[in-house]
Amino acid sequence: MTITNPITPPKADTKQKLWLAAIKPPMYTVAVIPISFGTALAYFSTGTVNFSIYITFLLSAIAIIAWLNLTNDVFDADTGIDVNKHHSVVNLTGNKALVFWIANIILILGLGGIFLINWWQQDWTVLWLILVSCFLGYTYQGPPFRLGYQGLGEIICFFTFGPMAIASAYYSQNQSFSFNSIIASTIIGISTSIILFCSHFHQVQDDTNAGKKSPIVRLGTKTGANVLIISVFLVYILSTIFVLTGQLPQQCLLVWFSFPVAYQLINHVNKYHAQPEKIKNSKFIAVNFHFISGLLLCLGLCFV
């Protein structure tokens, strides 16, 4: 379904803020945390880190996230779901084709970094994992799949930014896989999916109009708020269980120091879940929760 409502041009004095919102600087922690966590797990296993590989992988992951953000704006422009989203890069530039090709160039640069890592190691496993992850990322909004419109975005997010990204970062350091690292990666997968989940609360009407069956459209905002509470507590419950069962060191209980941010997120969503203007910043609180909890887990793995 395509929506043809005209877009009201933003005021000139808001353009800078709109561009900042379009670039989404906080969202790049979605690249930083999985790669750092996978690398920290590798360090916990071997006591060594190849920082050249870590930095190269990190920059590549940031480039891939930029590609995802830009192409999501392009594909959303095709359906009209972003008609009221002034901070869409496509709406700001008015040139969908240009945004699409810039996104693809950035993707090539990101994959170039992954290729370089594999070239150094003469092992192409990580490249294949990242290519599969990119394909899954494409299916979220890209035609003909558009799985995000069927409410499957959070599942895709869980696997791509959880087990797949973390296993790739771990392998890039050790050139081996670890069952413990894959199990522990579910924590980051959940906290990343929470960000996407929170991004739906404020756009229920636009999603409904465009035929997008997001989890919040399917569940309603109140039930969605309850699901969020369960998801946030799962991060702490699983972290504690993995410490008790030996998948993570006891220092990873540091993650509990992020609970004030978790409480802020739960309280905010529970209070404003049905008020689009007040709930729309919940995804940024979710980003803070993802970053701080992930950083504390990384520190727990590094200082053992």
Rank of each mutant, 00 (worst) to 15 (best):
L59R: 11
I292R: 00
V269S: 00
I108G: 10
S178H: 05
S88F: 12
N50D: 14
W101G: 09
Q173I: 06
K212Y: 03
T46L: 15
T221Q: 13
D207V: 08
I183S: 09
G162F: 04
N180R: 11
C157K: 00
D76M: 01
T79E: 14
V30P: 02
V243K: 10
P34V: 02
N5V: 15
L109R: 11
K15V: 09
Y263A: 10
I81K: 02
I285W: 06
S88E: 08
Q173N: 03
V99H: 12
N50Y: 11
P25W: 08
T139A: 09
Q251A: 04
H290S: 14
V49M: 15
T221V: 10
S193W: 07
V232T: 03
L299M: 07
T14N: 07
Q247N: 10
A31Q: 04
G137M: 01
K278H: 07
N104D: 10
A21K: 08
F242K: 10
A262R: 02
A21Q: 05
L131Q: 08
H202E: 14
V269W: 00
F291P: 02
T125P: 08
V255C: 13
V217I: 14
A77V: 02
N84T: 05
F44S: 12
V243F: 06
A165P: 05
K17D: 14
L299W: 03
Q205A: 15
M27F: 14
N288H: 05
G294H: 04
V49Q: 02
F259I: 15
L129S: 06
L127C: 01
T139F: 09
F303I: 13
I190S: 05
K11G: 10
N50P: 01
A169Y: 06
Q205D: 15
N226V: 02
I195M: 03
L18H: 05
N281Q: 15
K11H: 13
S214A: 07
N209A: 15
F242N: 12
F161L: 15
R218T: 04
F159R: 01
F158H: 01
T240I: 08
S231Y: 12
K15G: 08
T139H: 10
Y28K: 12
I65L: 15
I35Y: 08
Q121Y: 12
V132E: 05
S178K: 07
A274I: 05
G112D: 06
L98G: 05
F259T: 14
V235L: 06
S52G: 14
A165W: 02
Q121D: 07
P34C: 07
S293L: 05
S178M: 09
L152A: 15
D206E: 12
F37M: 00
Q175A: 07
H200E: 06
G142F: 01
I216G: 00
L297N: 07
G151Q: 01
F75E: 09
A22M: 13
S191I: 05
Y54G: 00
G148F: 06
L116E: 11
F44P: 03
L111K: 04
T8V: 09
Y43C: 02
T221M: 08
S282C: 11
L248G: 13
I81E: 07
N5I: 15
Y140W: 07
L248Y: 11
A22F: 10
K283V: 15
I187K: 01
F100Q: 11
D123R: 06
Y138L: 09
P163Q: 11
I108T: 14
P34T: 02
S214L: 03
Y171C: 07
V49K: 05
D76H: 02
A225C: 01
G300T: 07
A97V: 11
L265M: 09
F145Q: 03
S293A: 12
I81C: 06
